[in-house]
Design a protein around this nucleic acid. Structure first.
Lengths: 214, 214
DNA sequence: TTTGACTACTTAACACTGTTAAGTAGTTTT
DNA sequence: AAAACTACTTAACAGTGTTAAGTAGTCAAA
Protein backbone atom coordinates (compact mmCIF):
# COMPACT_ATOMS: atom_id res chain seq x y z
CA UNK A 1 0.00 0.00 0.00
CA UNK A 2 2.67 2.38 1.08
CA UNK A 3 4.84 0.71 -1.54
CA UNK A 4 2.48 1.61 -4.34
CA UNK A 5 2.22 5.16 -3.15
CA UNK A 6 5.98 5.36 -3.00
CA UNK A 7 6.28 3.99 -6.51
CA UNK A 8 3.76 6.53 -7.72
CA UNK A 9 5.72 9.18 -5.94
CA UNK A 10 8.79 7.93 -7.74
CA UNK A 11 7.04 8.06 -11.09
CA UNK A 12 5.99 11.56 -10.30
CA UNK A 13 9.56 12.50 -9.49
CA UNK A 14 10.67 10.75 -12.70
CA UNK A 15 8.36 12.87 -14.80
CA UNK A 16 9.55 16.01 -13.05
CA UNK A 17 13.10 15.03 -13.90
CA UNK A 18 12.33 14.08 -17.49
CA UNK A 19 10.61 17.43 -18.01
CA UNK A 20 13.78 19.10 -16.86
CA UNK A 21 15.89 16.90 -19.10
CA UNK A 22 13.74 17.64 -22.11
CA UNK A 23 13.98 21.34 -21.27
CA UNK A 24 17.75 21.05 -20.92
CA UNK A 25 18.09 19.24 -24.24
CA UNK A 26 16.02 21.77 -26.18
CA UNK A 27 17.69 24.54 -24.32
CA UNK A 28 21.22 23.48 -25.21
CA UNK A 29 20.21 22.43 -28.73
CA UNK A 30 18.14 25.42 -29.74
CA UNK A 31 18.76 28.06 -27.08
CA UNK A 32 16.51 29.58 -24.46
CA UNK A 33 14.35 31.72 -26.73
CA UNK A 34 13.35 28.77 -28.90
CA UNK A 35 12.43 26.53 -25.96
CA UNK A 36 8.70 26.66 -25.29
CA UNK A 37 6.48 24.76 -22.87
CA UNK A 38 4.74 23.16 -25.84
CA UNK A 39 8.02 21.91 -27.30
CA UNK A 40 9.10 20.48 -23.96
CA UNK A 41 5.73 18.73 -23.71
CA UNK A 42 6.03 17.28 -27.20
CA UNK A 43 9.55 16.07 -26.39
CA UNK A 44 8.31 13.97 -23.46
CA UNK A 45 5.03 12.97 -25.13
CA UNK A 46 2.66 14.73 -22.75
CA UNK A 47 0.27 17.59 -23.15
CA UNK A 48 1.60 21.09 -22.43
CA UNK A 49 -0.59 21.52 -19.36
CA UNK A 50 0.97 18.50 -17.67
CA UNK A 51 4.13 20.56 -17.24
CA UNK A 52 2.21 22.83 -14.89
CA UNK A 53 1.46 19.91 -12.58
CA UNK A 54 5.18 19.63 -11.91
CA UNK A 55 6.44 23.17 -12.28
CA UNK A 56 4.73 26.34 -11.19
CA UNK A 57 5.54 28.19 -14.39
CA UNK A 58 8.29 28.60 -16.97
CA UNK A 59 10.47 30.53 -14.55
CA UNK A 60 10.32 27.57 -12.20
CA UNK A 61 11.86 25.40 -14.93
CA UNK A 62 14.42 28.08 -15.72
CA UNK A 63 15.35 28.26 -12.07
CA UNK A 64 15.75 24.47 -11.94
CA UNK A 65 18.15 24.71 -14.89
CA UNK A 66 19.87 27.59 -13.15
CA UNK A 67 20.54 25.33 -10.15
CA UNK A 68 21.75 22.52 -12.42
CA UNK A 69 24.16 24.94 -14.02
CA UNK A 70 25.60 25.87 -10.65
CA UNK A 71 26.05 22.21 -9.83
CA UNK A 72 28.04 21.89 -13.05
CA UNK A 73 30.11 24.98 -12.26
CA UNK A 74 30.82 23.70 -8.77
CA UNK A 75 32.16 20.50 -10.29
CA UNK A 76 34.69 22.61 -12.15
CA UNK A 77 35.56 24.43 -8.97
CA UNK A 78 36.29 21.39 -6.80
CA UNK A 79 39.41 20.64 -8.83
CA UNK A 80 40.73 24.04 -7.74
CA UNK A 81 40.59 23.14 -4.07
CA UNK A 82 43.78 21.17 -4.60
CA UNK A 83 45.60 24.34 -5.65
CA UNK A 84 47.36 25.32 -2.43
CA UNK A 85 48.63 28.76 -3.36
CA UNK A 86 45.60 31.07 -3.11
CA UNK A 87 46.94 33.47 -5.70
CA UNK A 88 47.43 30.66 -8.19
CA UNK A 89 43.94 29.51 -7.28
CA UNK A 90 42.33 32.87 -7.96
CA UNK A 91 43.94 33.00 -11.39
CA UNK A 92 42.84 29.44 -12.12
CA UNK A 93 39.37 30.35 -10.88
CA UNK A 94 39.14 33.04 -13.52
CA UNK A 95 40.30 30.69 -16.26
CA UNK A 96 37.87 27.96 -15.20
CA UNK A 97 35.02 30.47 -15.00
CA UNK A 98 35.70 31.75 -18.51
CA UNK A 99 36.07 28.22 -19.78
CA UNK A 100 32.74 27.24 -18.25
CA UNK A 101 31.02 30.15 -19.97
CA UNK A 102 32.47 29.25 -23.37
CA UNK A 103 31.60 25.57 -22.98
CA UNK A 104 28.13 26.13 -21.55
CA UNK A 105 26.84 29.41 -22.99
CA UNK A 106 23.21 28.43 -22.41
CA UNK A 107 23.72 27.56 -18.78
CA UNK A 108 25.75 30.72 -18.33
CA UNK A 109 22.88 32.74 -19.73
CA UNK A 110 20.41 31.28 -17.24
CA UNK A 111 22.83 31.51 -14.34
CA UNK A 112 24.22 34.99 -14.75
CA UNK A 113 22.47 36.91 -17.49
CA UNK A 114 18.77 36.40 -16.88
CA UNK A 115 16.63 38.31 -14.44
CA UNK A 116 13.90 35.65 -14.33
CA UNK A 117 15.55 33.04 -12.11
CA UNK A 118 16.55 35.79 -9.68
CA UNK A 119 13.10 37.30 -9.47
CA UNK A 120 11.61 33.80 -9.16
CA UNK A 121 13.87 33.40 -6.15
CA UNK A 122 12.51 36.62 -4.74
CA UNK A 123 8.84 35.83 -5.13
CA UNK A 124 8.69 32.09 -4.50
CA UNK A 125 11.51 31.18 -2.15
CA UNK A 126 11.77 32.01 1.51
CA UNK A 127 13.93 34.70 3.07
CA UNK A 128 15.28 36.10 -0.19
CA UNK A 129 18.28 33.83 -0.60
CA UNK A 130 20.39 32.65 -3.50
CA UNK A 131 22.25 29.67 -2.06
CA UNK A 132 23.97 28.56 -5.28
CA UNK A 133 25.38 31.94 -6.13
CA UNK A 134 26.39 32.76 -2.61
CA UNK A 135 28.29 29.51 -2.31
CA UNK A 136 30.26 30.23 -5.46
CA UNK A 137 30.89 33.83 -4.46
CA UNK A 138 32.00 32.76 -0.99
CA UNK A 139 34.59 30.50 -2.60
CA UNK A 140 35.95 33.52 -4.46
CA UNK A 141 35.78 35.68 -1.34
CA UNK A 142 37.59 33.05 0.72
CA UNK A 143 40.35 32.79 -1.87
CA UNK A 144 40.74 36.58 -1.93
CA UNK A 145 40.95 36.59 1.88
CA UNK A 146 43.67 33.93 1.77
CA UNK A 147 45.55 36.00 -0.81
CA UNK A 148 45.36 38.96 1.52
CA UNK A 149 46.87 36.88 4.33
CA UNK A 150 49.83 36.37 2.04
CA UNK A 151 50.14 40.07 1.33
CA UNK A 152 48.16 40.44 -1.88
CA UNK A 153 45.51 43.14 -2.43
CA UNK A 154 47.17 45.34 0.13
CA UNK A 155 44.99 48.14 1.49
CA UNK A 156 41.87 46.91 -0.31
CA UNK A 157 38.60 45.51 1.03
CA UNK A 158 38.48 41.82 0.16
CA UNK A 159 34.75 41.93 -0.50
CA UNK A 160 35.12 44.50 -3.22
CA UNK A 161 38.20 42.83 -4.65
CA UNK A 162 36.09 39.70 -5.03
CA UNK A 163 33.25 41.67 -6.57
CA UNK A 164 35.57 43.42 -8.98
CA UNK A 165 37.20 40.12 -9.92
CA UNK A 166 33.85 38.54 -10.63
CA UNK A 167 32.79 41.62 -12.57
CA UNK A 168 35.94 41.56 -14.67
CA UNK A 169 35.51 37.99 -15.92
CA UNK A 170 31.73 38.28 -16.13
CA UNK A 171 32.08 41.41 -18.22
CA UNK A 172 34.38 39.80 -20.75
CA UNK A 173 32.25 36.69 -20.97
CA UNK A 174 28.97 38.56 -21.46
CA UNK A 175 30.49 40.83 -24.10
CA UNK A 176 31.33 37.64 -25.95
CA UNK A 177 27.95 35.98 -25.43
CA UNK A 178 26.03 39.07 -26.56
CA UNK A 179 27.99 39.11 -29.83
CA UNK A 180 29.66 42.42 -29.01
CA UNK A 181 33.13 40.93 -28.73
CA UNK A 182 33.16 39.69 -32.32
CA UNK A 183 32.42 43.21 -33.59
CA UNK A 184 35.34 44.54 -31.56
CA UNK A 185 37.50 41.74 -32.92
CA UNK A 186 36.78 42.97 -36.45
CA UNK A 187 37.59 46.51 -35.39
CA UNK A 188 40.89 45.54 -33.81
CA UNK A 189 41.81 43.51 -36.89
CA UNK A 190 44.30 41.45 -34.93
CA UNK A 191 43.39 38.11 -36.48
CA UNK A 192 42.55 36.59 -33.13
CA UNK A 193 39.53 34.50 -32.22
CA UNK A 194 37.10 35.97 -29.69
CA UNK A 195 38.26 33.33 -27.25
CA UNK A 196 41.86 34.48 -27.59
CA UNK A 197 40.71 38.08 -27.22
CA UNK A 198 39.01 37.23 -23.93
CA UNK A 199 42.12 35.38 -22.79
CA UNK A 200 44.36 38.33 -23.60
CA UNK A 201 42.08 40.71 -21.74
CA UNK A 202 42.02 38.36 -18.78
CA UNK A 203 45.82 38.29 -18.85
CA UNK A 204 45.73 42.07 -18.46
CA UNK A 205 43.56 41.63 -15.39
CA UNK A 206 46.04 39.09 -14.02
CA UNK A 207 48.86 41.56 -14.66
CA UNK A 208 46.91 44.17 -12.69
CA UNK A 209 46.37 42.01 -9.62
CA UNK A 210 49.92 40.71 -9.69
CA UNK A 211 51.10 44.22 -8.92
CA UNK A 212 48.98 44.39 -5.78
CA UNK A 213 51.59 42.76 -3.53
CA UNK A 214 54.43 45.26 -3.80
CA UNK B 1 5.04 68.98 -57.68
CA UNK B 2 8.39 68.26 -56.26
CA UNK B 3 7.30 70.27 -53.23
CA UNK B 4 4.35 68.03 -52.56
CA UNK B 5 6.47 64.96 -52.94
CA UNK B 6 8.95 66.44 -50.55
CA UNK B 7 6.23 67.20 -48.02
CA UNK B 8 4.95 63.67 -48.33
CA UNK B 9 8.45 62.46 -47.84
CA UNK B 10 8.61 64.58 -44.73
CA UNK B 11 5.37 63.16 -43.39
CA UNK B 12 6.73 59.75 -44.00
CA UNK B 13 9.87 60.61 -42.09
CA UNK B 14 7.70 62.09 -39.32
CA UNK B 15 5.80 58.85 -38.89
CA UNK B 16 9.02 56.89 -38.84
CA UNK B 17 10.23 59.16 -36.05
CA UNK B 18 7.00 59.02 -34.08
CA UNK B 19 7.03 55.23 -34.26
CA UNK B 20 10.48 55.32 -32.72
CA UNK B 21 9.36 57.79 -30.09
CA UNK B 22 6.39 55.67 -29.14
CA UNK B 23 8.68 52.65 -28.96
CA UNK B 24 11.13 54.60 -26.81
CA UNK B 25 8.39 55.77 -24.47
CA UNK B 26 6.93 52.30 -23.94
CA UNK B 27 10.37 50.89 -23.72
CA UNK B 28 11.51 53.21 -20.94
CA UNK B 29 8.14 53.08 -19.19
CA UNK B 30 7.49 49.36 -19.29
CA UNK B 31 10.74 47.77 -20.39
CA UNK B 32 11.73 45.91 -23.52
CA UNK B 33 9.85 42.66 -22.90
CA UNK B 34 6.54 44.49 -22.45
CA UNK B 35 6.91 46.56 -25.62
CA UNK B 36 5.10 44.95 -28.54
CA UNK B 37 4.48 46.09 -32.08
CA UNK B 38 0.76 46.23 -31.32
CA UNK B 39 1.29 48.51 -28.33
CA UNK B 40 3.53 50.82 -30.32
CA UNK B 41 0.87 50.95 -33.04
CA UNK B 42 -1.88 51.75 -30.53
CA UNK B 43 0.29 54.50 -29.05
CA UNK B 44 0.56 56.32 -32.37
CA UNK B 45 -3.00 55.47 -33.48
CA UNK B 46 -2.14 53.30 -36.48
CA UNK B 47 -2.67 49.67 -37.24
CA UNK B 48 0.17 47.29 -36.28
CA UNK B 49 1.01 46.50 -39.88
CA UNK B 50 1.77 50.14 -40.64
CA UNK B 51 4.90 49.77 -38.51
CA UNK B 52 6.24 47.34 -41.10
CA UNK B 53 6.04 50.01 -43.79
CA UNK B 54 8.65 52.01 -41.90
CA UNK B 55 10.72 49.36 -40.16
CA UNK B 56 11.72 46.00 -41.54
CA UNK B 57 10.93 44.16 -38.34
CA UNK B 58 11.13 44.53 -34.58
CA UNK B 59 14.91 44.19 -34.58
CA UNK B 60 15.06 47.15 -36.93
CA UNK B 61 13.29 49.27 -34.30
CA UNK B 62 15.53 47.87 -31.58
CA UNK B 63 18.58 48.75 -33.63
CA UNK B 64 17.26 52.31 -34.13
CA UNK B 65 16.93 52.62 -30.34
CA UNK B 66 20.39 51.10 -29.99
CA UNK B 67 21.78 53.92 -32.15
CA UNK B 68 19.85 56.54 -30.19
CA UNK B 69 21.32 55.16 -27.00
CA UNK B 70 24.83 55.54 -28.37
CA UNK B 71 24.09 59.12 -29.33
CA UNK B 72 23.07 59.72 -25.71
CA UNK B 73 26.19 58.01 -24.39
CA UNK B 74 28.37 60.06 -26.72
CA UNK B 75 26.84 63.21 -25.30
CA UNK B 76 28.09 62.11 -21.89
CA UNK B 77 31.51 61.43 -23.35
CA UNK B 78 32.06 64.82 -25.01
CA UNK B 79 32.35 66.47 -21.59
CA UNK B 80 35.33 64.22 -20.94
CA UNK B 81 37.27 65.58 -23.88
CA UNK B 82 38.05 68.63 -21.75
CA UNK B 83 39.84 66.44 -19.23
CA UNK B 84 43.46 66.87 -20.27
CA UNK B 85 45.13 64.23 -18.13
CA UNK B 86 44.41 60.93 -19.90
CA UNK B 87 44.58 58.92 -16.67
CA UNK B 88 42.03 61.19 -15.02
CA UNK B 89 39.99 60.84 -18.19
CA UNK B 90 40.00 57.06 -18.15
CA UNK B 91 38.80 57.05 -14.54
CA UNK B 92 36.09 59.59 -15.35
CA UNK B 93 35.16 57.51 -18.39
CA UNK B 94 34.44 54.58 -16.11
CA UNK B 95 32.35 56.66 -13.76
CA UNK B 96 30.37 58.22 -16.61
CA UNK B 97 29.80 54.80 -18.18
CA UNK B 98 28.48 53.35 -14.93
CA UNK B 99 26.36 56.41 -14.39
CA UNK B 100 24.88 56.11 -17.86
CA UNK B 101 23.93 52.49 -17.22
CA UNK B 102 22.21 53.33 -13.93
CA UNK B 103 20.34 56.26 -15.43
CA UNK B 104 19.36 54.52 -18.65
CA UNK B 105 19.04 50.81 -17.86
CA UNK B 106 16.76 50.20 -20.84
CA UNK B 107 19.08 51.82 -23.33
CA UNK B 108 22.00 49.97 -21.78
CA UNK B 109 20.16 46.71 -22.28
CA UNK B 110 19.63 47.37 -25.98
CA UNK B 111 23.13 48.72 -26.49
CA UNK B 112 25.24 46.16 -24.67
CA UNK B 113 23.19 43.23 -23.47
CA UNK B 114 21.07 42.19 -26.41
CA UNK B 115 22.15 39.98 -29.28
CA UNK B 116 19.37 41.19 -31.62
CA UNK B 117 20.74 44.60 -32.63
CA UNK B 118 24.15 43.01 -33.26
CA UNK B 119 22.78 40.24 -35.43
CA UNK B 120 20.56 42.74 -37.22
CA UNK B 121 23.75 44.59 -38.04
CA UNK B 122 25.24 41.39 -39.39
CA UNK B 123 22.37 40.44 -41.65
CA UNK B 124 21.06 43.79 -42.88
CA UNK B 125 23.96 46.22 -42.94
CA UNK B 126 26.87 46.26 -45.29
CA UNK B 127 30.40 45.06 -44.57
CA UNK B 128 29.69 43.87 -41.04
CA UNK B 129 30.32 47.10 -39.17
CA UNK B 130 29.23 48.54 -35.85
CA UNK B 131 30.03 52.25 -36.22
CA UNK B 132 28.49 53.42 -32.91
CA UNK B 133 30.28 50.88 -30.76
CA UNK B 134 33.57 51.21 -32.56
CA UNK B 135 33.55 54.95 -32.10
CA UNK B 136 33.01 54.62 -28.35
CA UNK B 137 35.60 51.88 -28.06
CA UNK B 138 38.11 53.91 -30.07
CA UNK B 139 37.69 56.76 -27.58
CA UNK B 140 38.61 54.35 -24.80
CA UNK B 141 41.50 52.91 -26.82
CA UNK B 142 42.82 56.37 -27.59
CA UNK B 143 42.73 57.35 -23.94
CA UNK B 144 44.56 54.15 -22.98
CA UNK B 145 47.18 54.89 -25.63
CA UNK B 146 47.67 58.40 -24.23
CA UNK B 147 48.03 56.93 -20.75
CA UNK B 148 50.73 54.63 -22.06
CA UNK B 149 52.60 57.62 -23.50
CA UNK B 150 52.72 58.95 -19.96
CA UNK B 151 54.04 55.69 -18.57
CA UNK B 152 50.86 53.95 -17.47
CA UNK B 153 50.01 50.32 -18.33
CA UNK B 154 53.68 49.54 -18.74
CA UNK B 155 54.43 46.37 -20.67
CA UNK B 156 50.80 45.80 -21.61
CA UNK B 157 49.03 45.84 -24.97
CA UNK B 158 46.79 48.90 -25.06
CA UNK B 159 44.09 47.08 -27.02
CA UNK B 160 43.66 44.50 -24.32
CA UNK B 161 43.89 47.06 -21.53
CA UNK B 162 41.00 48.85 -23.18
CA UNK B 163 39.08 45.61 -23.59
CA UNK B 164 39.68 44.63 -19.98
CA UNK B 165 38.66 48.09 -18.79
CA UNK B 166 35.45 47.91 -20.74
CA UNK B 167 34.85 44.37 -19.49
CA UNK B 168 35.39 45.45 -15.88
CA UNK B 169 32.76 48.19 -15.87
CA UNK B 170 30.41 46.27 -18.14
CA UNK B 171 30.62 43.29 -15.83
CA UNK B 172 29.69 45.26 -12.74
CA UNK B 173 26.88 47.05 -14.52
CA UNK B 174 25.34 43.89 -15.98
CA UNK B 175 25.52 42.09 -12.64
CA UNK B 176 23.46 44.95 -11.31
CA UNK B 177 20.99 45.03 -14.19
CA UNK B 178 20.40 41.27 -14.06
CA UNK B 179 19.48 41.51 -10.37
CA UNK B 180 22.49 39.47 -9.29
CA UNK B 181 24.18 42.34 -7.48
CA UNK B 182 21.31 42.81 -5.04
CA UNK B 183 21.54 39.18 -3.98
CA UNK B 184 25.25 39.60 -3.33
CA UNK B 185 24.49 42.77 -1.40
CA UNK B 186 22.28 40.75 0.94
CA UNK B 187 25.00 38.15 1.28
CA UNK B 188 27.65 40.71 2.12
CA UNK B 189 25.31 42.37 4.63
CA UNK B 190 27.25 45.62 4.47
CA UNK B 191 24.22 47.88 4.42
CA UNK B 192 25.25 49.48 1.14
CA UNK B 193 23.07 50.17 -1.86
CA UNK B 194 23.85 48.28 -5.06
CA UNK B 195 25.03 51.54 -6.55
CA UNK B 196 27.54 52.01 -3.74
CA UNK B 197 28.61 48.40 -4.15
CA UNK B 198 29.36 48.97 -7.82
CA UNK B 199 31.24 52.16 -6.96
CA UNK B 200 33.36 50.39 -4.35
CA UNK B 201 34.19 47.60 -6.80
CA UNK B 202 35.08 50.19 -9.44
CA UNK B 203 37.36 51.88 -6.91
CA UNK B 204 39.20 48.57 -6.59
CA UNK B 205 39.66 48.56 -10.35
CA UNK B 206 41.00 52.10 -10.18
CA UNK B 207 43.40 51.04 -7.43
CA UNK B 208 44.61 48.23 -9.69
CA UNK B 209 45.33 50.44 -12.68
CA UNK B 210 46.94 53.11 -10.52
CA UNK B 211 49.69 50.65 -9.71
CA UNK B 212 50.50 50.13 -13.36
CA UNK B 213 52.90 53.10 -13.60
CA UNK B 214 55.56 52.09 -11.08
C1' DT C 1 -20.85 -4.17 -5.05
C1' DT C 2 -21.65 0.38 -5.71
C1' DT C 3 -20.78 5.05 -4.63
C1' DG C 4 -17.76 8.78 -4.04
C1' DA C 5 -13.34 10.76 -3.80
C1' DC C 6 -8.84 11.23 -5.54
C1' DT C 7 -5.05 11.07 -9.10
C1' DA C 8 -2.99 12.03 -13.46
C1' DC C 9 -3.72 13.77 -17.32
C1' DT C 10 -6.11 16.19 -21.52
C1' DT C 11 -9.02 19.42 -24.30
C1' DA C 12 -10.38 23.92 -25.10
C1' DA C 13 -9.80 28.36 -24.51
C1' DC C 14 -7.88 33.22 -23.32
C1' DA C 15 -5.07 36.81 -24.32
C1' DC C 16 -1.20 37.71 -26.11
C1' DT C 17 3.17 37.76 -29.61
C1' DG C 18 5.70 38.92 -34.51
C1' DT C 19 4.69 38.85 -39.18
C1' DT C 20 2.58 38.45 -43.94
C1' DA C 21 -0.92 38.37 -47.77
C1' DA C 22 -4.52 40.54 -49.58
C1' DG C 23 -7.60 44.28 -49.97
C1' DT C 24 -9.20 49.25 -49.95
C1' DA C 25 -9.73 54.01 -50.12
C1' DG C 26 -7.62 58.21 -52.06
C1' DT C 27 -4.50 60.64 -54.91
C1' DT C 28 -1.78 61.17 -59.00
C1' DT C 29 -0.48 60.25 -63.68
C1' DT C 30 -1.50 58.95 -68.32
C1' DA D 1 -12.01 58.27 -67.73
C1' DA D 2 -8.66 54.59 -66.89
C1' DA D 3 -4.63 52.96 -64.96
C1' DA D 4 -1.10 53.24 -61.51
C1' DC D 5 0.64 54.40 -57.34
C1' DT D 6 0.49 55.60 -52.22
C1' DA D 7 -0.68 54.87 -47.51
C1' DC D 8 -2.94 52.35 -44.81
C1' DT D 9 -6.16 48.45 -42.91
C1' DT D 10 -8.37 43.86 -42.15
C1' DA D 11 -7.80 39.13 -41.63
C1' DA D 12 -5.12 35.58 -40.89
C1' DC D 13 -1.04 32.33 -39.70
C1' DA D 14 1.61 30.22 -36.46
C1' DG D 15 3.25 30.62 -32.39
C1' DT D 16 3.64 31.97 -27.01
C1' DG D 17 2.53 31.26 -21.55
C1' DT D 18 -1.17 30.03 -18.81
C1' DT D 19 -5.79 28.63 -16.76
C1' DA D 20 -10.50 26.49 -16.24
C1' DA D 21 -12.96 22.67 -16.94
C1' DG D 22 -13.46 17.95 -18.05
C1' DT D 23 -12.22 12.86 -18.28
C1' DA D 24 -10.62 8.38 -17.68
C1' DG D 25 -8.75 5.24 -14.16
C1' DT D 26 -7.72 3.87 -9.38
C1' DC D 27 -8.74 3.58 -4.72
C1' DA D 28 -11.41 3.55 -0.24
C1' DA D 29 -15.51 3.63 2.32
C1' DA D 30 -20.66 2.55 2.60
Amino acid sequence: MADIKQRQQKHKEDLKISILEAAKKLFVQEGYEATSIRKIAKEIGFSPTTIYLYYKDKNDIVYALHREGFQLLRQQFVALESVDDPFQRIKALGRVYIDFAFRNPDYYQVMFMMKEPMTFLDTHCAQEQWPEGERAFDFLRGTVAQCQEQGWFKGLDGNFVALQTWGAVHGLVTLYLSEHMSKIAENLALDLSVRELVNKAFEVFVAFIEQSKK
